[in-house]
Design a protein around this nucleic acid. Structure first.
Lengths: 336, 336
DNA sequence: CATTTCACATGTAACAGTTTCGCCGACTGT
DNA sequence: ACAGTCGGCGAAACTGTTACATGTGAAATG
């Protein structure tokens, strides 16, 4: 195991300078920094305290939006459950706040004793994930997918299940089906929208772009979306809503407007926890299990960190979503 | 600041033995252990790594039930937000799993670089909180209160607001008011039940013990409670449900049984997040803010840890709950 | 032009805590 | 009685970090 003194020897500087580079002290030359960092990366340096290595796993959330959603909460729950079996500890970190000026992510993680990181992102902060992955730090993105082959990820494929859901609506006789997509797009939400379009295409139905509504992923966003949908000249008879809170908000707003669900309006929601059971009628939904997602994210990380598993780990995993039919969907009303 | 070498000198052993005691190695005599631990506690020892001290705060959950509830999630959210301002990092720990055999909580925390802990408990695990507090480790219990004067805590007083809520039902003409209390009792739930009884007493109404239902704090628990209430000979016209998920479950079960809320049955729920807005009609509720609770829990800890604030901190805080009237309550129906 | 000054990069050494190695003494089986 | 084993412990060797000293080169000053 490479120590600070080894790195010092190999890069031709003192241990003090190595430590300064690793901790990003200001008074160090660019030349020394580069030499040290290249050796440290090559030797796969991990800091140990005394003789003991630290065993923290970070849950790093990169978006402005914090960890308040049910999805994040379930991820943390799943991770923390699985991690305890392996003796790791979970640290919650915000990418924005936690770094010192000019500090590399790797440096920041080492400073905090973090061995690996589970990253939570949105479309806007993809670059953060790529930066961390390209630094070579062990990490896995959860709930999103990447084209960049250096980035490990684990997510749920909701495209085909979204298509299945919309096809279900079509089979019930619905022809004007609206969709709510998230204003802040990540690839998962884009997938759900793609599934919606595919179902239409396969059935030979045109997609009316007026029925594609962009809305926020919370209760009020769903309520607003519903009002905007329903005040159109030829309103939809069914909705596919790609976020749990927005779906719940829309269902309740419909009832509050006197619209009967599912008699007058069918709603297919999305659920990553138990939101579908918190409304009446229970919500027909595309479902994913965020707890499992968190647990498997840690599994990937654990295998990345374990030097004994030499076999190539599947670092880019896709879990299946599934479709559950409950009480919020019904055959289309006879005439508008 | 006391170092391992200081402690070694004062307790008459070597630094190696001090380290062994602090890390709970098996090969150390009871005599040495006691000497070292007593000196370490007296000198308020904090480990530093190299020259730098670690800055972790733990969220320690002691119950079997894990951190999956909305309440816990909001606590973590509130803590983590506030902590970032002060440069602390949040660690999620499970009391059951995280300790080595025969390890003191203080030892465990020091081993992990934790400076202070926010404790989350239920009635059954009160003793854990008292143990940690009596060890002298900086900690604060959140969401519960203690008679033991050594235990710091911060919680929301829901007793008087619960009374206010039930008085509201009485003023609407309800005379048979049921209450759902949690099967796993903590002092908060006991308070809510006490508020219910107080309101009855103040109004000169008897409490029918058949209307006091014990149920689980989740959706199905609420649904079950509702069925049990309604199949009684003289069913209640209003319910006070002391848990958010149970309240939501009961509301939906009522509708699913064809009971109209609030026309035939008024429901006052409890909410620590935004559960009251996720149902239709929106739920009249006793409310507390779990995010604030988490943030203030950290504040208490922060002041305990800050050596410059010599003024006595208020280590036992009570935040107010409040009562919000929404659409799930209405005047009592004319005749049963 | 010579000298002083000063900032900066770096190395030495002293610090923090942990673990390995080996010594000592007590117990135990034959 | 004696050899073997094992528990407890201290010295020393290891981990990473930081205070202090040192040298160097450029700018400023006589």
């Amino acid at each position: 195991m490479a120590s600070v003194r080894d790195i010092a020897k190999r890069s031709g500087v003192s241990t003090a300078t190595v430590s300064r580079v690793l901790n990003n002290h200001p008074r160090v030359s660019e030349e020394a920094r580069e030499k040290v960092l290249s050796v440290a990366n090559r030797e796969r340096y991990v800091p140990t305290v005394g003789r003991r290595s630290t065993t923290n796993i970070a849950f790093l959330y990169t978006a402005e939006t914090s960890i308040s959603s049910q999805f994040d909460s379930s991820l943390i729950h799943g991770m923390s459950q699985r991690m305890e079996e392996y003796g790791f500890d979970l640290m919650i970190l915000a990418a924005r706040r936690v770094r010192l000026p000019n500090e590399t992510f790797t440096q920041m993680f080492l400073r905090k004793g973090v061995r690996g990181a589970v990253l939570r992102t949105t479309e806007r902060t993809h670059s953060v994930c790529e930066t961390i992955a390209e630094e070579g730090f062990p990490c896995v993105v959860v709930g999103d997918r990447f084209d960049n082959p250096q980035v490990n990820f684990i997510h749920t494929d909701s495209r085909s299940t979204s298509r299945e859901a919309v096809e279900h609506l079509i089979s019930l006789g619905h022809r004007r089906i609206g969709v709510f997509a998230n204003l802040i797009d990540d690839s998962d939400h884009a997938d759900r929208l793609a599934g919606y379009r595919e179902a239409h295409q396969a059935a030979g139905l045109p997609v009316d772009e007026n029925l594609v509504i962009r809305t926020w992923a919370h209760l009020e966003g769903g309520a607003q979306g519903l009002r905007r949908s329903m005040q159109q000249l030829d309103p939809p008879t069914a909705l596919f809503i790609t976020d749990p809170m927005a779906a719940v908000g829309a269902m309740n707003e419909a009832q509050s407007m006197g619209l009967q669900v599912p008699a007058q309006l069918s709603i297919v929601g999305f659920d990553d926890g138990e939101a579908r059971y918190t409304v009446f009628p229970k919500m027909t939904s595309v479902c994913q299990n965020a707890v499992t997602l968190g647990a498997e994210a840690f599994d990937v990380l654990n295998q990345l960190l374990d030097p004994t598993t030499s076999d190539p780990v599947d670092k880019r995993r896709t879990l299946p979503a599934w479709f559950e039919i409950h009480g919020s969907t019904a055959p289309a009303p006879a005439v508008a």
